[in-house]
Simulated assay, not measured.
Amino acid sequence: MNLDLLDKVLGVSGGISWVVSYVFYRLYRSRTDTARQVKNIPIWEPGEDLLSHLTNDGNLAYAAVEGVVKELNRTLHSRHGNNEGVIMETQLIEHKSQRINGFWSDVKKVLRDTTEYVPFALKPVKDSGTDGNKHVVEVLDPGQAARLRDELETTHDSFEPHRSSLVQIGIDRLFGEVSKGLQESEKMLLTGTSLLGVGKVFLERGQIKMAPPDDLSRTYILTKMRLSELVRHYEAQSSMYKVIALLSALIGGGILSIIVWRQTRAWLERRKQRIQFEDIRRAMAEAAERRRVHISVARNRNSEEAEIDNTCVVCLTNQRQVVALNCGHISLCADCAEALHFPKKCPVCRAAVVRFMPIFHA
């Protein structure tokens, strides 16, 4: 199979479309499975009922717990206010303008990105405070939970413009990089935040704990959403990823169909020309046989020069035997005409060759 540049570009594009389709199909299956798994799981609140169930019936392999964030040992204090929380994410980002291929574009450079965790638990929404930590659910490995970073509350976000002299600005623009300023942001999971946890719930040394499920096909989730909202969220994502996967698959299939159509058309054209050249050779062989019977060959200098002038422009050995249509140039022998790359072009004027016709020398 001979692939030209366009076929190669189409092949790469089709391959990328299939890869994108597969990636979004996996995302679609993941979101669909998560929505199905979460939809009918039991919902518990930290308290005596949950403790009694775990004591009598054992661990909950996959369950939901609704409660309020409570610190266990210490809290994290905001650097820009009086907020207290159990997770704090800080970022320092430098904003720049860079000249790329003659065009100015805004770029970001992360100078600092840190996340701090302290142990925390979920306590009952209506907490009397008399049982201490007995009825709270300690949350383990929160960094592995899906959606948690999306639930952090922004407690600080400021932008400090970069101040430079006109001379420095001119130098920066000359070198193609201008600093616009620094953005500092802080996000926290505040104590007292209502949170829904979905994962494995178990009892360890009399303390209720939540951790990532043992079954890796199940998703560990910490979110501010209610369970019904969470299910709708994953179902909406599933539908969106399904549409993207189908569109990518259709695009890939369409590109594959174009390649097959182009290659089939080229194969039919080559087959047609092969049959054509077989007819040309047959006719020329018959003409040569008739010449040998009726004509005696006499060579002289003029005839030798004429023979040289009549040689194929490609191989410079055989006589010119075919005429290229529609341009009409007689410059090739049959072998070289057949060997031209498809689509065939006249070697004299580079015009597209519709077909070749044999010529006969007297």
Rank of each mutant, 00 (worst) to 15 (best):
T264Y: 03
V293K: 15
L325E: 05
A287N: 14
V323P: 01
L268W: 02
V293H: 14
R320Q: 05
S296F: 06
R290S: 13
Q273L: 12
N318T: 01
Q276L: 13
A306K: 11
S303E: 02
F277N: 06
T311K: 13
A285Q: 11
M284R: 15
S296I: 06
R265I: 03
V293Y: 08
E307G: 03
R290W: 09
N318E: 12
K272S: 14
E278M: 11
N318S: 09
R301N: 13
R292I: 10
R282H: 11
E307H: 04
R281N: 07
L325R: 04
I295Y: 09
R274T: 08
I295G: 03
I295W: 05
A288Y: 09
R320G: 02
H294Q: 12
A298C: 09
R270T: 09
L316I: 02
R320P: 00
Q273V: 08
T264R: 06
L325K: 08
V297R: 12
E304K: 10
N326C: 00
R290Y: 12
E286K: 14
N310H: 10
R265S: 08
R292E: 14
I308T: 09
N302P: 00
R301I: 09
I295H: 13
R291G: 13
E278K: 07
R270Q: 15
V297T: 13
R282M: 10
C315P: 02
N300V: 08
A287W: 14
A324R: 00
S303A: 08
T317H: 01
E307W: 05
N318D: 08
D309C: 04
S296A: 15
Q276E: 15
T264E: 06
L316G: 03
N302Y: 07
E278H: 11
R299D: 08
A324E: 02
R290P: 04
R271P: 00
H294R: 14
M284L: 15
T311S: 07
A324K: 00
F277W: 09
A287H: 15
S296M: 14
I280L: 10
I275P: 00
A285Y: 08
T264H: 01
D309I: 00
E304Y: 09
R271E: 09
A266E: 06
R301V: 09
N326S: 07
A287Q: 13
I280F: 13
